[in-house]
Amino acid sequence: MERKHEKYEQLIARCKALAPVPTAVAHPCDESSLRGVVEAAEMGVLQPILVGPRAKIEAIAAQFQLDISRYELVDAPHSQASAEAAVKLAREGKAHMLMKGSLHTDELMSAVVNSTNGLRTAHRISHAFVMDVPSLDRAIIITDAAINIAPSLKDKVHIVQNAIDLAHALGFGTPKVAILSAMETINPDILSTIEAAALCKMADRKQITGGILDGPLALDNAINLQAAKIKKIDSPVAGMADILVAPDLEAGNMLAKSLTFMAHADAAGIVLGARVPIILTSRADSVMTRLASCAVAALVAEARRVDASKAVTL
């Protein structure tokens, strides 16, 4: 527990050297969502554009003594309209990040994935948790725990690549990626083991780039070096994984929540694969987790800005 939050504090510290990122905040209409925005703005992580019912947002700010006078406020009558207006700001380049307020995730994501006016790209949209687990010496990424319910092998290629790109933005270097299953051997009766093997071979053929993949791996031998040694697993990933790729949403969600509620971890959520990084927070998130979610997205936005400037130079 002495290490609690140290990984998040390092991410937030990196953001302080960057310019605040213009961020469209969809429907921040309760205390926790509005307070999280204000605190992230005061730390210099983001420059918020508040999108929602003006009177309601101003009333909440007054009730809880939150100063929003410095921030742009775009009036929208209800949560769905707020989501659509926030997405429009991102699509027009006025916002470089999108942040969920007090509306349902489904409402925000339906606007994001709209085929006409959304933020889709050639990449599959996926979710990742950046986990600060006190007992580990590094932050780990868990994907996908919130968007893709039962991803196909084709979907998993994008999910893995999105996670690797996230790791690069966070300064992980070349991340070690564990494709999780219930075992570390290939079993034709368990589809996730076959897909894990296929993903690893796709990485060998440069269809997935930037990371070192191995799988199938069970959770114990993915993150615990002693467990990997006992099972005699010869792997550059086993016991040292930076990214844990769950076989489906249920497994990913349960893994992240198990770490949160039984190992005292924090989980900063982000949606990847859209035109801009999307900050997903929960009403149950701590202040530190909210700030970390903003910091993670800001580092992703900065990495994209740098890549875009390099492309223009070339």
Rank of each mutant, 00 (worst) to 15 (best):
A90S: 12
V296K: 10
R283L: 06
I270C: 05
A26F: 00
D204F: 00
R70K: 15
D30G: 12
T193H: 13
L191D: 05
L34K: 11
I49K: 03
A40I: 01
A40T: 00
S32W: 03
K154H: 15
F129Y: 12
A145M: 05
V296G: 05
D307E: 15
L199P: 02
P188F: 02
E2P: 10
L249Q: 11
A167D: 13
A251P: 10
D67V: 06
I212S: 07
A85S: 13
V287W: 08
S33P: 11
M240F: 09
Q161P: 05
K232F: 10
D155Q: 14
L119V: 00
N187D: 14
A301P: 04
A26E: 02
D285F: 05
A85K: 05
R70H: 15
L249G: 04
L199M: 12
Y8I: 08
T185N: 08
K176L: 14
L255I: 08
H5E: 12
S79Q: 12
P247A: 01
A203N: 06
M240I: 03
C294V: 00
A90G: 07
I141D: 01
D67E: 08
V245P: 08
E84F: 09
E72T: 06
G171L: 08
T289E: 15
I230W: 04
I141N: 02
H27W: 07
A59L: 06
A85F: 02
A203W: 06
P53D: 08
A297H: 00
I49C: 00
L259W: 03
D204Q: 14
Q10V: 11
V45K: 02
A263M: 10
K56N: 05
I190Q: 07
I208D: 09
L89F: 04
G52W: 02
A197H: 09
N162R: 03
L119S: 01
V37K: 07
P151Q: 06
S33F: 08
L249V: 07
A308C: 11
K156T: 10
L244S: 00
F64A: 08
L136K: 07
D220W: 09
L66N: 11
P188S: 02
G215Y: 01
A308Q: 15
D220L: 05
V51F: 03
D132V: 03
S126T: 09
R54P: 10
A182H: 09
T260G: 08
P77G: 12
K7V: 09
V276D: 01
H27M: 07
H264R: 10
K310N: 12
D75F: 05
L46P: 00
Y71V: 01
A274G: 01
K206F: 12
H123N: 15
E250H: 14
N253T: 05
G44A: 05
A222S: 09
I230E: 11
K310C: 02
A55I: 06
V287L: 15
D307G: 12
G44V: 03
H78M: 12
V276S: 04
A145W: 04
R205M: 09
K201E: 14
R205L: 13
P216V: 12
R138V: 07
V177P: 07
M1K: 03
N253L: 04
A83C: 10
A122L: 15
D137G: 15
A163W: 01
L255T: 13
A303S: 15
S82K: 00
E39I: 14
K4V: 11
P48R: 02
E92I: 03
S286M: 13
S286F: 13
S192Q: 09
I243R: 08
M99G: 00
I12H: 12
S135E: 15
A256K: 01
